[in-house]
Protein backbone atom coordinates (compact mmCIF):
# COMPACT_ATOMS: atom_id res chain seq x y z
CA UNK A 1 0.00 0.00 0.00
CA UNK A 2 1.45 3.39 -0.88
CA UNK A 3 0.16 5.99 1.52
CA UNK A 4 1.42 9.53 0.92
CA UNK A 5 2.84 9.56 4.44
CA UNK A 6 6.16 8.22 5.71
CA UNK A 7 6.15 5.28 8.10
CA UNK A 8 7.15 7.63 10.87
CA UNK A 9 4.17 9.91 10.28
CA UNK A 10 1.88 6.90 10.37
CA UNK A 11 3.52 5.62 13.54
CA UNK A 12 3.02 8.98 15.31
CA UNK A 13 -0.50 9.23 13.91
CA UNK A 14 -1.38 5.83 15.34
CA UNK A 15 0.46 6.29 18.63
CA UNK A 16 1.00 9.97 19.30
CA UNK A 17 3.30 10.88 22.21
CA UNK A 18 2.63 13.54 24.87
CA UNK A 19 -1.11 13.72 24.25
CA UNK A 20 -3.27 15.58 26.72
CA UNK A 21 -3.45 18.71 28.81
CA UNK A 22 -1.28 20.00 31.64
CA UNK A 23 -3.19 21.28 34.63
CA UNK A 24 -1.93 24.67 35.77
CA UNK A 25 0.24 24.92 32.69
CA UNK A 26 2.71 27.80 32.64
CA UNK A 27 1.70 28.61 29.10
CA UNK A 28 -0.92 27.54 26.60
CA UNK A 29 -1.22 28.35 22.91
CA UNK A 30 -3.68 27.44 20.18
CA UNK A 31 -3.12 27.82 16.47
CA UNK A 32 -5.51 27.12 13.63
CA UNK A 33 -9.21 26.33 13.85
CA UNK A 34 -11.61 23.50 13.08
CA UNK A 35 -12.95 25.74 10.33
CA UNK A 36 -9.60 25.55 8.55
CA UNK A 37 -9.42 21.84 9.20
CA UNK A 38 -6.38 22.05 11.46
CA UNK A 39 -5.89 23.06 15.06
CA UNK A 40 -3.12 22.47 17.55
CA UNK A 41 -3.13 23.32 21.23
CA UNK A 42 0.07 23.16 23.29
CA UNK A 43 0.57 23.18 27.06
CA UNK A 44 3.95 24.00 28.65
CA UNK A 45 5.43 23.48 32.08
CA UNK A 46 8.63 25.49 32.40
CA UNK A 47 11.20 25.45 35.20
CA UNK A 48 11.27 29.09 36.36
CA UNK A 49 14.98 29.00 37.24
CA UNK A 50 16.53 27.12 34.35
CA UNK A 51 13.78 28.05 31.85
CA UNK A 52 13.82 24.48 30.64
CA UNK A 53 10.60 23.01 29.25
CA UNK A 54 9.97 20.31 31.84
CA UNK A 55 6.76 19.04 30.34
CA UNK A 56 4.86 19.66 27.14
CA UNK A 57 1.58 18.16 25.98
CA UNK A 58 -0.65 18.68 22.99
CA UNK A 59 -4.14 18.27 21.64
CA UNK A 60 -4.92 18.25 17.98
CA UNK A 61 -7.81 18.51 15.58
CA UNK A 62 -6.76 17.59 12.09
CA UNK A 63 -5.33 15.17 9.63
CA UNK A 64 -2.58 12.62 10.14
CA UNK A 65 0.24 15.04 9.47
CA UNK A 66 -1.22 17.55 11.89
CA UNK A 67 -1.30 14.96 14.66
CA UNK A 68 2.15 13.62 13.83
CA UNK A 69 3.85 17.03 13.62
CA UNK A 70 2.28 18.25 16.85
CA UNK A 71 3.50 15.09 18.53
CA UNK A 72 7.04 15.36 17.17
CA UNK A 73 7.23 19.04 18.16
CA UNK A 74 6.52 18.09 21.77
CA UNK A 75 9.35 15.57 21.65
CA UNK A 76 11.76 18.04 20.05
CA UNK A 77 10.97 20.74 22.61
CA UNK A 78 10.88 18.65 25.78
CA UNK A 79 13.83 19.23 28.13
CA UNK A 80 15.07 22.09 25.95
CA UNK A 81 15.46 25.64 27.25
CA UNK A 82 12.91 28.05 25.88
CA UNK A 83 15.72 29.77 23.97
CA UNK A 84 16.62 26.50 22.24
CA UNK A 85 12.98 25.54 21.70
CA UNK A 86 12.28 28.84 19.97
CA UNK A 87 14.72 27.86 17.25
CA UNK A 88 12.85 24.67 16.28
CA UNK A 89 11.51 25.14 12.76
CA UNK A 90 9.08 23.25 10.56
CA UNK A 91 11.90 21.75 8.50
CA UNK A 92 13.32 20.04 11.58
CA UNK A 93 9.88 18.73 12.47
CA UNK A 94 9.34 17.48 8.93
CA UNK A 95 12.81 15.86 8.78
CA UNK A 96 12.27 14.15 12.12
CA UNK A 97 9.15 12.60 10.59
CA UNK A 98 10.95 11.41 7.48
CA UNK A 99 9.39 14.18 5.37
CA UNK A 100 5.86 15.41 4.74
CA UNK A 101 3.87 15.57 1.51
CA UNK A 102 4.21 19.16 0.16
CA UNK A 103 0.51 19.92 0.62
CA UNK A 104 0.82 18.97 4.29
CA UNK A 105 3.76 21.21 5.17
CA UNK A 106 1.39 23.83 6.58
CA UNK A 107 0.55 21.36 9.36
CA UNK A 108 4.17 21.43 10.51
CA UNK A 109 4.18 25.21 10.30
CA UNK A 110 1.07 25.30 12.48
CA UNK A 111 2.63 23.15 15.19
CA UNK A 112 5.82 25.25 15.18
CA UNK A 113 3.71 28.42 15.42
CA UNK A 114 1.90 26.98 18.41
CA UNK A 115 5.22 26.30 20.14
CA UNK A 116 6.52 29.81 19.39
CA UNK A 117 3.30 31.39 20.63
CA UNK A 118 3.30 29.28 23.78
CA UNK A 119 6.87 30.38 24.57
CA UNK A 120 5.99 34.00 23.81
CA UNK A 121 2.98 33.73 26.11
CA UNK A 122 5.22 32.29 28.81
CA UNK A 123 7.68 35.16 28.48
CA UNK A 124 4.92 37.73 28.72
CA UNK A 125 3.41 36.03 31.72
CA UNK A 126 6.73 35.82 33.55
CA UNK A 127 7.60 39.36 32.57
CA UNK A 128 10.77 38.29 30.83
CA UNK A 129 9.99 39.88 27.49
CA UNK A 130 12.92 41.84 26.10
CA UNK A 131 10.94 44.94 25.16
CA UNK A 132 8.26 45.87 27.71
CA UNK A 133 5.97 47.82 25.43
CA UNK A 134 2.67 48.85 26.98
CA UNK A 135 -0.23 46.97 25.41
CA UNK A 136 -2.46 48.97 23.10
CA UNK A 137 -5.80 48.13 21.44
CA UNK A 138 -3.85 47.90 18.19
CA UNK A 139 -1.64 45.18 19.68
CA UNK A 140 -4.68 43.35 20.97
CA UNK A 141 -6.21 43.46 17.50
CA UNK A 142 -3.01 42.07 16.04
CA UNK A 143 -3.17 39.09 18.40
CA UNK A 144 -6.90 38.58 17.78
CA UNK A 145 -6.22 38.42 14.06
CA UNK A 146 -4.87 34.92 14.69
CA UNK A 147 -8.02 33.67 16.38
CA UNK A 148 -10.16 31.94 13.79
CA UNK A 149 -13.94 32.00 13.98
CA UNK A 150 -14.91 28.34 13.48
CA UNK A 151 -18.16 29.34 11.84
CA UNK A 152 -16.66 31.23 8.95
CA UNK A 153 -13.04 30.15 8.82
CA UNK A 154 -12.10 33.84 8.95
CA UNK A 155 -10.25 35.55 11.77
CA UNK A 156 -12.49 37.09 14.41
CA UNK A 157 -11.75 40.65 13.29
CA UNK A 158 -13.20 40.01 9.82
CA UNK A 159 -16.89 40.78 9.26
CA UNK A 160 -16.96 42.56 12.61
CA UNK A 161 -17.23 39.43 14.70
CA UNK A 162 -15.36 41.28 17.45
CA UNK A 163 -17.68 44.19 18.04
CA UNK A 164 -15.86 46.09 20.75
CA UNK A 165 -12.49 46.10 22.45
CA UNK A 166 -11.92 48.22 25.53
CA UNK A 167 -8.65 48.47 27.38
CA UNK A 168 -8.52 50.06 30.81
CA UNK A 169 -5.71 49.86 33.29
CA UNK A 170 -4.72 46.26 32.48
CA UNK A 171 -8.32 45.18 32.05
CA UNK A 172 -9.60 44.12 28.63
CA UNK A 173 -13.26 43.66 27.64
CA UNK A 174 -14.07 42.11 24.29
CA UNK A 175 -17.60 41.88 22.93
CA UNK A 176 -18.22 39.23 20.29
CA UNK A 177 -21.10 38.78 17.86
CA UNK A 178 -22.30 35.43 19.19
CA UNK A 179 -24.68 34.21 21.86
CA UNK A 180 -23.20 32.54 24.93
CA UNK A 181 -25.09 29.28 24.35
CA UNK A 182 -23.56 28.73 20.91
CA UNK A 183 -21.71 25.45 20.30
CA UNK A 184 -18.41 27.31 19.81
CA UNK A 185 -18.87 30.05 22.39
CA UNK A 186 -16.68 28.31 24.95
CA UNK A 187 -13.89 27.66 22.48
CA UNK A 188 -13.82 31.19 21.15
CA UNK A 189 -13.83 32.68 24.64
CA UNK A 190 -11.00 30.42 25.72
CA UNK A 191 -8.93 31.21 22.65
CA UNK A 192 -9.36 34.95 22.94
CA UNK A 193 -8.39 34.87 26.61
CA UNK A 194 -5.44 32.68 25.78
CA UNK A 195 -4.17 35.20 23.21
CA UNK A 196 -4.50 38.32 25.33
CA UNK A 197 -4.16 37.26 28.97
CA UNK A 198 -0.43 36.39 28.84
CA UNK A 199 0.53 39.96 27.80
CA UNK A 200 2.80 41.21 30.56
CA UNK A 201 0.71 44.23 31.56
CA UNK A 202 -2.73 42.64 31.25
CA UNK A 203 -4.38 41.43 34.44
CA UNK A 204 -7.79 40.38 33.30
CA UNK A 205 -9.61 39.59 30.04
CA UNK A 206 -13.39 39.34 29.79
CA UNK A 207 -15.13 37.98 26.72
CA UNK A 208 -18.74 39.14 26.52
CA UNK A 209 -21.38 37.56 24.34
CA UNK A 210 -24.27 39.38 22.72
CA UNK A 211 -26.97 38.03 25.02
CA UNK A 212 -24.91 38.86 28.11
CA UNK A 213 -24.19 42.36 26.88
CA UNK A 214 -27.88 42.95 26.22
CA UNK A 215 -28.81 41.68 29.70
CA UNK A 216 -26.16 43.87 31.27
CA UNK A 217 -27.65 46.94 29.62
CA UNK A 218 -31.10 46.29 31.06
CA UNK A 219 -31.69 47.97 34.42
Amino acid sequence: MSLPYSEKVIEYFKNPKNVGEIENADAVATEGSPACGDMVKLFLKVDPDTRVIEDIKFKSYGCASNIATASIITELAKKKSIEEAKKINWKQASDALGGLPPVKVHCAVLAVDALKTAIENYEHKRGIVTKKEPTTVKMIRKRLARVINPLTGLDVLKVNFVKEISLNDGKVDILVDLNSDHQFAGNIKEEIKERIEPLWDIDRVEVLFLDQAVKAEKP
Binding site: F13, K14, G37, D38, Y61, C63, I67
Partner: peptide, 29 residues
Protein backbone atom coordinates in the same frame (compact mmCIF):
# COMPACT_ATOMS: atom_id res chain seq x y z
CA UNK B 1 -15.03 17.82 17.15
CA UNK B 2 -12.90 15.63 14.88
CA UNK B 3 -11.56 15.88 11.35
CA UNK B 4 -12.48 13.46 8.58
CA UNK B 5 -9.11 12.64 7.02
CA UNK B 6 -7.92 11.20 10.31
CA UNK B 7 -11.03 9.07 10.55
CA UNK B 8 -10.59 7.84 6.97
CA UNK B 9 -6.92 6.97 7.52
CA UNK B 10 -7.54 5.15 10.80
CA UNK B 11 -10.38 3.17 9.21
CA UNK B 12 -8.26 2.41 6.17
CA UNK B 13 -5.58 0.92 8.40
CA UNK B 14 -8.31 -1.37 9.72
CA UNK B 15 -9.43 -2.40 6.24
CA UNK B 16 -12.45 -0.11 5.90
CA UNK B 17 -12.74 2.11 2.81
CA UNK B 18 -14.80 5.29 3.21
CA UNK B 19 -14.34 8.95 2.22
CA UNK B 20 -14.77 12.38 3.80
CA UNK B 21 -15.85 15.83 2.64
CA UNK B 22 -12.90 17.34 4.49
CA UNK B 23 -10.63 19.78 2.68
CA UNK B 24 -7.57 17.81 3.79
CA UNK B 25 -8.81 14.87 1.80
CA UNK B 26 -9.69 16.63 -1.44
CA UNK B 27 -7.35 17.19 -4.35
CA UNK B 28 -8.37 20.82 -4.41
CA UNK B 29 -7.90 21.19 -0.62
Amino acid sequence: YIEGESVVLHLDMRGIAVITGSACFSRAL
